[in-house]
Computed example of a mutant assay.
Amino acid sequence: MLLYLKEMDEIYAEKILRWKYEAPYDFYNNEYSVEDVQELLNSSYSAILDDQDEVFGFFCIGESAQVPIDADFGAYPQGYIDVGIGMNPEFTGRGKGLSFLTFILQQINEEHGALPVRLTVAAFNTRAIHLYEKLGFVKEKEFYRGDVVFITMVKGA
Protein backbone atom coordinates (compact mmCIF):
# COMPACT_ATOMS: atom_id res chain seq x y z
CA MET A 1 0.00 0.00 0.00
CA LEU A 2 1.46 3.32 -1.09
CA LEU A 3 0.56 6.37 1.00
CA TYR A 4 1.60 9.96 0.59
CA LEU A 5 1.13 13.21 2.45
CA LYS A 6 -0.80 16.20 1.18
CA GLU A 7 -1.45 19.57 2.72
CA MET A 8 -4.94 19.63 4.19
CA ASP A 9 -7.29 21.65 2.02
CA GLU A 10 -11.00 22.37 2.06
CA ILE A 11 -11.88 19.46 -0.23
CA TYR A 12 -10.05 16.91 1.93
CA ALA A 13 -11.48 18.44 5.12
CA GLU A 14 -15.05 18.21 3.82
CA LYS A 15 -14.56 14.56 2.80
CA ILE A 16 -13.14 13.69 6.24
CA LEU A 17 -15.98 15.41 8.08
CA ARG A 18 -18.52 13.33 6.15
CA TRP A 19 -17.00 9.97 7.13
CA LYS A 20 -19.39 7.70 9.03
CA TYR A 21 -18.15 4.84 11.18
CA GLU A 22 -20.09 1.75 12.28
CA ALA A 23 -20.94 1.35 15.98
CA PRO A 24 -19.23 1.46 18.40
CA TYR A 25 -16.78 3.57 16.39
CA ASP A 26 -19.56 6.00 15.45
CA PHE A 27 -18.29 7.84 18.54
CA TYR A 28 -15.72 9.28 16.10
CA ASN A 29 -18.30 10.59 13.61
CA ASN A 30 -18.24 14.31 13.01
CA GLU A 31 -20.96 16.75 12.19
CA TYR A 32 -20.11 18.86 9.19
CA SER A 33 -19.80 22.56 10.01
CA VAL A 34 -17.81 25.53 8.78
CA GLU A 35 -16.06 25.66 12.17
CA ASP A 36 -14.97 22.03 11.86
CA VAL A 37 -13.62 22.64 8.36
CA GLN A 38 -11.63 25.59 9.75
CA GLU A 39 -10.26 23.38 12.54
CA LEU A 40 -8.93 20.91 9.96
CA LEU A 41 -7.36 23.81 8.04
CA ASN A 42 -5.49 25.18 11.09
CA SER A 43 -2.11 23.91 9.76
CA SER A 44 -1.70 21.15 12.36
CA TYR A 45 -3.58 18.64 10.14
CA SER A 46 -2.27 16.73 7.12
CA ALA A 47 -4.20 14.57 4.68
CA ILE A 48 -2.95 11.12 3.72
CA LEU A 49 -3.85 9.82 0.28
CA ASP A 50 -3.42 6.37 -1.21
CA ASP A 51 -2.16 5.46 -4.68
CA GLN A 52 -5.71 5.91 -6.03
CA ASP A 53 -5.75 9.53 -4.73
CA GLU A 54 -8.42 8.58 -2.19
CA VAL A 55 -8.28 10.24 1.22
CA PHE A 56 -7.02 7.28 3.25
CA GLY A 57 -6.77 9.20 6.51
CA PHE A 58 -5.29 12.17 8.29
CA PHE A 59 -3.21 13.09 11.26
CA CYS A 60 -2.71 16.14 13.40
CA ILE A 61 -0.10 17.15 15.91
CA GLY A 62 0.05 19.39 18.94
CA GLU A 63 -2.93 20.71 20.86
CA SER A 64 -5.31 19.65 18.09
CA ALA A 65 -4.43 16.03 18.95
CA GLN A 66 -5.39 16.43 22.61
CA VAL A 67 -8.85 15.75 24.01
CA PRO A 68 -10.13 19.03 25.46
CA ILE A 69 -10.65 18.58 29.19
CA ASP A 70 -12.16 20.94 31.71
CA ALA A 71 -9.56 20.41 34.43
CA ASP A 72 -5.88 19.59 34.38
CA PHE A 73 -5.66 15.90 35.18
CA GLY A 74 -1.96 15.85 34.30
CA ALA A 75 -2.88 14.02 31.10
CA TYR A 76 -0.68 16.14 28.88
CA PRO A 77 2.67 16.96 30.49
CA GLN A 78 5.27 18.68 28.28
CA GLY A 79 7.97 16.82 26.38
CA TYR A 80 5.90 14.84 23.85
CA ILE A 81 4.63 15.33 20.35
CA ASP A 82 0.89 14.71 20.55
CA VAL A 83 -0.54 12.99 17.50
CA GLY A 84 -4.14 12.40 16.53
CA ILE A 85 -5.11 10.09 13.69
CA GLY A 86 -8.16 9.19 11.69
CA MET A 87 -8.55 6.51 9.04
CA ASN A 88 -11.21 6.51 6.38
CA PRO A 89 -13.92 4.08 7.59
CA GLU A 90 -13.77 2.31 4.20
CA PHE A 91 -10.34 0.99 5.22
CA THR A 92 -10.75 0.29 8.95
CA GLY A 93 -10.75 -3.26 10.26
CA ARG A 94 -8.95 -4.55 7.15
CA GLY A 95 -5.40 -4.92 8.49
CA LYS A 96 -4.18 -1.58 7.16
CA GLY A 97 -3.67 0.19 10.48
CA LEU A 98 -0.09 -0.93 11.03
CA SER A 99 1.21 0.48 7.75
CA PHE A 100 -0.95 3.61 8.18
CA LEU A 101 0.37 4.45 11.65
CA THR A 102 3.94 3.48 10.70
CA PHE A 103 3.71 5.96 7.82
CA ILE A 104 2.49 8.70 10.19
CA LEU A 105 5.24 8.03 12.73
CA GLN A 106 7.86 8.19 9.95
CA GLN A 107 6.46 11.56 8.81
CA ILE A 108 6.60 12.92 12.36
CA ASN A 109 10.14 11.62 12.85
CA GLU A 110 11.29 13.22 9.58
CA GLU A 111 9.77 16.57 10.49
CA HIS A 112 10.44 16.72 14.24
CA GLY A 113 13.25 14.27 14.89
CA ALA A 114 13.23 11.38 17.30
CA LEU A 115 11.05 12.80 20.06
CA PRO A 116 8.65 10.85 22.27
CA VAL A 117 5.15 10.61 20.79
CA ARG A 118 1.85 10.54 22.68
CA LEU A 119 -1.64 9.77 21.46
CA THR A 120 -5.02 9.65 23.16
CA VAL A 121 -7.56 6.91 22.59
CA ALA A 122 -11.02 6.14 23.95
CA ALA A 123 -10.67 3.16 26.31
CA PHE A 124 -13.38 1.17 24.49
CA ASN A 125 -11.34 1.24 21.27
CA THR A 126 -9.46 -1.99 21.94
CA ARG A 127 -8.72 -2.42 18.23
CA ALA A 128 -6.71 0.82 18.19
CA ILE A 129 -5.08 0.14 21.56
CA HIS A 130 -3.87 -3.24 20.30
CA LEU A 131 -2.37 -1.57 17.22
CA TYR A 132 -0.64 1.10 19.30
CA GLU A 133 0.83 -1.52 21.62
CA LYS A 134 2.12 -3.46 18.59
CA LEU A 135 4.08 -0.34 17.62
CA GLY A 136 5.57 0.09 21.09
CA PHE A 137 3.13 2.50 22.73
CA VAL A 138 2.43 1.96 26.41
CA LYS A 139 -0.53 3.16 28.44
CA GLU A 140 0.34 6.18 30.57
CA LYS A 141 -2.71 7.90 32.05
CA GLU A 142 -6.50 7.58 32.13
CA PHE A 143 -8.98 10.41 32.42
CA TYR A 144 -12.67 11.06 31.85
CA ARG A 145 -14.35 13.50 29.56
CA GLY A 146 -18.01 13.25 30.41
CA ASP A 147 -18.67 9.53 30.77
CA VAL A 148 -15.98 8.47 28.30
CA VAL A 149 -12.68 7.11 29.59
CA PHE A 150 -9.62 8.16 27.60
CA ILE A 151 -6.12 6.74 27.78
CA THR A 152 -2.92 8.50 26.82
CA MET A 153 -0.31 6.18 25.34
CA VAL A 154 3.35 7.07 24.80
CA LYS A 155 6.19 5.79 22.70
CA GLY A 156 9.75 6.83 23.48
CA ALA A 157 12.09 8.26 20.90
Rank of each mutant, 00 (worst) to 15 (best):
G62A: 01
L98H: 04
A71S: 14
S64N: 09
G84M: 14
G79D: 05
D70C: 05
F91I: 07
G95R: 08
E90T: 04
D82A: 01
L98Y: 11
I81W: 03
R94E: 13
R94T: 14
D70H: 15
G93Q: 12
M87K: 13
G95W: 09
G86W: 02
T92G: 09
G74S: 10
E90D: 12
F73D: 00
P89E: 09
D72Y: 01
G86K: 05
G97P: 05
G93V: 07
G84S: 02
Y76V: 00
A75V: 03
G84F: 04
E90A: 15
M87Q: 14
A75W: 00
D82Y: 08
E63W: 05
Y80A: 01
L98M: 10
S64H: 08
G86H: 06
G93Y: 00
A71C: 13
Q66D: 01
G79W: 02
G62F: 11
I85S: 09
Q66N: 09
Y80T: 02
A71H: 05
A75C: 09
V67P: 00
G84N: 05
P77I: 06
I69Y: 02
G74K: 04
A65E: 07
V83C: 13
D70S: 15
R94N: 07
G93S: 08
G93R: 12
I69S: 03
K96E: 12
P68Q: 11
D70N: 15
M87W: 08
K96C: 06
L98E: 11
I85K: 11
Q66K: 06
S64K: 11
G74V: 02
E63S: 11
S64F: 09
Q66T: 01
K96R: 14
I81G: 06
G97Q: 07
E90M: 03
F91C: 01
G93A: 12
D82I: 03
Q66E: 04
I69M: 01
Y80D: 07
D72T: 00
Y80I: 03
G84K: 10
I69V: 02
D70Q: 14
M87H: 08
D70F: 08
D70G: 07
I69T: 02
F73L: 03
A71W: 12
N88M: 14
G93I: 08
V67I: 15
S64A: 12
E63A: 10
P68H: 08
G79Y: 01
A71M: 01
A75F: 03
F73M: 02
P68M: 13
G95M: 08
M87L: 15
P68T: 01
D82H: 12
D72M: 00
G86C: 08
